[in-house]
């Protein structure tokens, strides 16, 4: 039942946890006319409480990590997390630096990994579609 409800239009929450902006402008580009994920009902949510899919970009800094956890807790379940870019997956070039947690999956459970630095908008849409699939199959984290 609850999967039927969210099936058609999962909304995105985009959170920058200390990225270089590269992934952010690609996420921004992915919601513009050339790629247009609104075909799939995907659009940016104005508030984390409306969102279904959390897009994490950036090497998670310790300061932003706390807020990432809080943001994740505020989202209603079922929800999925997409880690976009090498930094969000493992820290990328910044891995091992002192203010970093290095990797979103150390703070919250990550469902889909999108490698690249930054990934193309198509790759981000591909990742979002995989997250939708996981949500529809009843996966995702509660």
């Amino acid at each position: 039942m609850r999967n039927k409800l969210i099936r058609y239009s999962p909304w995105l929450v985009h959170f920058n946890t200390g990225a270089c902006n590269g992934c952010d402008i690609e996420v921004l580009a992915a919601i513009t006319p050339l790629f247009d994920p609104e075909r799939m009902g995907v659009k940016l949510a104005p508030n984390p409480r409306h969102g279904d899919i959390l897009i994490v970009t950036g090497a998670v800094t310790k300061k932003a990590g706390e807020r990432l956890k809080r943001l994740y807790d505020q989202m209603p379940s079922p929800k999925a997390v997409v880690a976009v870019g090498a930094c969000a997956i493992s820290g990328g070039v910044f891995a091992g630096s002192y203010p970093l947690v290095s990797g979103a999956d150390k703070v919250i459970p990550v469902d889909v990994y999108v490698p690249g630095c930054p990934p193309r908008p198509e790759a981000i849409i591909d990742g979002i579609l995989k997250a939708i699939k996981k949500l529809e199959e009843g996966g995702g984290s509660d």
Partner: peptide, 11 residues
């Protein structure tokens, strides 16, 4: 600010 500090100079 400070949400985005990554310690690049040290790296």
């Amino acid at each position: 600010t400070g949400y985005n500090h990554r310690g690049v100079e040290k790296l």
